[in-house]
């Protein structure tokens, strides 16, 4: 196991009033367990406010958890500092959603992508040489490396961001919506590239996305998040073939051009449209957090919060009614 998150949570304080006192918390992630095996592409799916990005950042300690623990390659790194933290940084990487904002606007691409090596004491000339090598692997020509980010297209910038995350050969990379800021035609290029790199470098991915089609293509495991909690998780095939949580089903039924997308014929899903909009994560509903939008809601859902139950091996769902909902 490369990564294990145990009952992890992150609360962001909301300050208000004259003295900017803490008046409440955004419970972005509120008690999540996640186990990622070496070689997985573990997708975390959810809508805005689900806490998926926060969970991604927690898993490589870009944020410190409010509670819970992080175990990376068998070592507890929840409170890692100094050399231990540096080692963790060396073995992990992240690619952000918006390639327009994740590259320093005043640095040349070559300096941006070789910085991880330089931080680790590599001599700049050597680092640049390695950068050029890696860049050609992701399809960035040498001349592009000597330009500034604003002179590159979105796809090219995202390739540069990938080089930066990859260059010291980490074990685990968090991909935070890696293609959602890109055009469709570029999106496919980047997804294919990520797939190739995974094989080449024996990587493990945590893929954060709202796009279930991408999940199906890239991931082998998926966790569906809603308002800071995982509501369903398991192998991708299982979740797509027999989703149990009403929220998972409604995510699947919300895919545009659904008939075309599912025209492979293997999968048939029932259609559920959730009503209304996700509530704010500052005040999640009592009981099951999805009950305000769930078409199957019964009394117990409003009172008691369901816990993750095994449906079968590796497939878990948090719903009072999962035995009745059978896709």
């Amino acid at each position: 196991m490369i990564l294990r998150l145990k009952n992890i949570g992150k609360y962001f304080p909301i300050r208000g009033g004259l003295l900017s006192r803490v008046v409440g918390y955004v419970k972005a992630v509120d008690g999540v367990d996640l186990e990622v095996e070496e070689g997985d592409t573990y997708a975390i799916v959810g809508e805005s406010g689900s806490g998926k990005t926060t969970l991604g950042k927690l898993s490589i300690k870009l944020l410190d958890p409010t509670f819970g623990s992080i175990e990376f390659m068998g070592r507890d790194v929840t409170f890692a500092k100094g050399k231990e933290l540096k080692d963790l940084r060396r073995s992990t990487g992240i690619v952000f959603q918006d390639p327009y904002r994740s590259l320093h606007p005043r640095k040349k691409i070559i300096d941006i992508v070789s910085e991880p090596l330089i931080i680790n004491g590599q001599d700049p000339e050597e680092a640049h040489k390695i950068a050029i090598e890696f860049a050609s692997m992701v399809g960035l020509t040498k001349d592009l490396l000597y330009k500034y980010p604003h002179q590159l297209s979105g796809g090219q910038r995202q390739r540069a961001a990938i080089v930066r995350a990859l260059i010291y050969r980490p074990r685990l990379i968090v991909l935070d919506e890696p293609t959602s800021a890109l055009d469709v035609s570029t999106q496919a290029q980047i997804l294919n590239l990520l797939e190739d790199l995974k094989k080449e470098f024996k990587l493990t991915y945590i893929l954060i996305t709202h796009n279930l089609q991408i999940v199906y293509h890239l991931a082998n495991k998926v966790a569906v998040m809603y308002l800071g909690k995982i509501v369903e998780k398991g192998p991708v095939e299982k979740i797509f073939e027999s989703p149990r949580h009403p929220y998972t089903i409604s995510l699947l039924s919300s895919i545009p051009a659904i008939d075309y997308v599912f025209s492979g014929g293997k999968i048939n899903i029932p259609r559920i449209t959730p009503t209304g909009e996700p509530p704010s994560p500052t005040k999640p509903p009592k009981g099951c957090r999805f009950h305000t939008r769930c078409p199957f809601v019964i009394d117990i859902c409003r009172r008691e919060e369901p816990t993750l139950q095994p449906v079968e091996k590796d497939h878990y769902v948090a719903c009072h009614l999962w035995q009745k909902i059978n896709a």
């Binding site: 290029q189 025209s263 492979g264 293997k266």
Partner: peptide
């Protein structure tokens, strides 16, 4: 054709997504 085939489809596991080379 390229736009259409770059929409990932579910239930149809392909090795690669078809993509358009180059940039607009």
């Amino acid at each position: 054709q390229a736009l259409l085939s770059s929409i990932p489809r579910i239930g149809l596991k392909t090795e690669k997504l078809m993509s358009i080379s180059g940039e607009p």
